[in-house]
Each structure stands twice: as C-alpha cells, then as structure tokens.
C-alpha cells in the first residue's frame, strides 16, 4: 500500500526551480533512496514533504490525506519524522532529554496537569520514560543517557538523531545523508541499522545519501534528481546502468 504520494510538486525560488514536477511513491515498509549531485534539490524535496516549504505547485498525500501546506509539527504528528543533513540535536540537553522531548507531541495531559503532576500525567510520563529507554537501548546508546548530546562522537550523534525521530512514532522516516562523514566500516553498520529499524518499527524510509555503497545496498527503489528534474527512477540495478545517471554524476565528453 502506498503511504506517501508526491504528486508533481514544484518549488520555485524566484527564477530558480529548485525542484520541478517531482513524482514519488513510497509503499509501506519500503526503503527508498533519493540521490543526485550537490544542489540537485534533494533537501528541498525533503523540506516540501515535511512542511518546511509549501510547494509552488503540486500536492503531497500521506495516507491519502493531502498534507500540502500543513505546518511541520502537524505533519510530524501525522507520522512523518526526519533527521537533518547537519545534525540538529538539542545540544545542551542530555541524550535522554533529546528523546523524551520527541515524545511530547503524543502527550495528552495539559500544561497544568504537568505542573501539579496528576496521576494521569505521572502515568504518561512513566510510559514515555520507559519507551525512551527502550529506544535508546535499540540504538545502542543506553549507557550514555546522561551525557550531553554534543559530547557524543559523530556517529553516535547520528544514531541519537534517528532515535529521536523514531520517538515521534512515525510511519515514514526521512533520513538526510545519514552516512555523511562516516568511514566504510561505520557505513556498513549503518546499512544494517537502517534495515533493523525498518523491520522492528515497521516503517517506510526515504533517504538522501551520497554513499553509493549504502544506497545500492539497502534501497529497494531509487529516485535520481539533477537540477531539480527527476532523471531516473527504479531498482538499484537499473539506476547503476542508466546512462543519464552516469552522465549526471560523471559528465560526458
């Protein structure tokens, strides 16, 4: 079943079309890659799906609901979570707090209940706490929960960002260059990790990545952007042999 349907979205900044007529379909529990040279419009596409930008033209449907122009926090509540290209953790807060905050959107108690600590709120808080510990165990950060987020090594910060996104209980997870700055060994671990979370949390994943090894190894479907235009889509094998893709990445004589 399709959970995300991107219907011909275009983003225009003044005279520049950062993304034009992007069509994309993502099924449940599918891992999809979005690749392309620098400045191809990949992150812009992410920002349109997550509500940071409102597309100039076209619509985005999530679970058959039109989410075009909805605010980012509402889209997160509907079930799309994301990570950022340049890690955006709550740096001065603890690892645990980072994950706890991502549970806030599911909290039912009001602000007064949270101050007087009603039994209902306490129950919810305990549930959130246990859920967050479980998540941190899943991503292998359980021994670091009281550490400040910016004290973590780079690879663990990336993991924490993914854990934080998972805490919002998404059905679709958008990863913006999760392997950036990782060595080959870490990239391999990351591939394994991405598959694991897909299976464990039964979510679909859309990822932007430059590491071809990661993309080809883990994605079931790939979209290729160049100057905002979708130049190819299909399985990893198809993409690898597509002359247009090779041209976009390597150029031709």
């Amino acid at each position: 079943m399709t959970i995300l349907n991107v219907d011909n979205i275009t983003m225009q900044f003044g005279g520049i079309k950062a993304v034009s007529d992007l069509k994309m379909e993502i099924n449940e529990r599918e891992i999809v890659g979005l690749i392309g040279p620098n400045g191809a419009g990949k992150t812009t596409a992410f920002n349109m799906i997550t509500g940071v930008y409102k597309p100039t033209l076209g619509n985005v449907y999530f679970n058959d609901k039109n989410i075009t122009g909805i605010k980012p926090h509402e889209i997160t509540k509907l079930g799309i979570a994301r990570t950022f290209q340049n890690i955006r953790l709550f740096k001065e807060l603890s690892v645990l707090d980072n994950v706890l905050i991502a549970n806030h959107l599911r909290l039912k108690s009001g602000i007064v209940a949270s101050i007087v600590k009603t039994p209902n709120y306490k129950k919810e808080e305990r549930h959130i706490y246990e859920k967050s510990l479980q998540l941190l165990e899943d991503v292998g950060l359980l021994d670091l929960i009281n550490e400040r987020a910016d004290n973590l090594p780079y690879g663990k910060q990336r993991r924490l960002e993914i854990a934080r996104a998972l805490a919002t209980e998404p059905k679709l997870l958008l990863l913006d260059e999760p392997a950036a700055g990782m060595n080959p060994q870490e990239s391999l671990e990351l591939m394994e990790f991405i598959r694991e979370i897909r299976d464990k949390y039964e979510i679909a994943i859309l990822m932007i990545e430059h590491h071809m090894q990661v993309i080809m190894g883990v994605c079931e479907k790939i979209y290729v952007l160049d100057y905002g235009i979708t130049i190819a889509e299909g399985s990893p094998e198809n993409i690898q042999n597509n002359p247009k893709v090779i041209e976009a990445y390597l150029g031709v004589d």
Partner: peptide, 25 residues
Amino acid sequence: KLMDGSYGKAILAIREDEIAAEAMG
C-alpha cells in the same frame, strides 16, 4: 515543576533549536 515536566522540556527544545523542535512535533 514546569521545567521538570514534558512542557518544560519542549520549551527548552525551542531554545536549543527551533527548527529541530518543530520537526519533532
């Protein structure tokens, strides 16, 4: 009590990184 609770943490998140806080709902 406010800052210890979930709402207080969300408020801190806004100070730390508005864009990330919004993306986390």
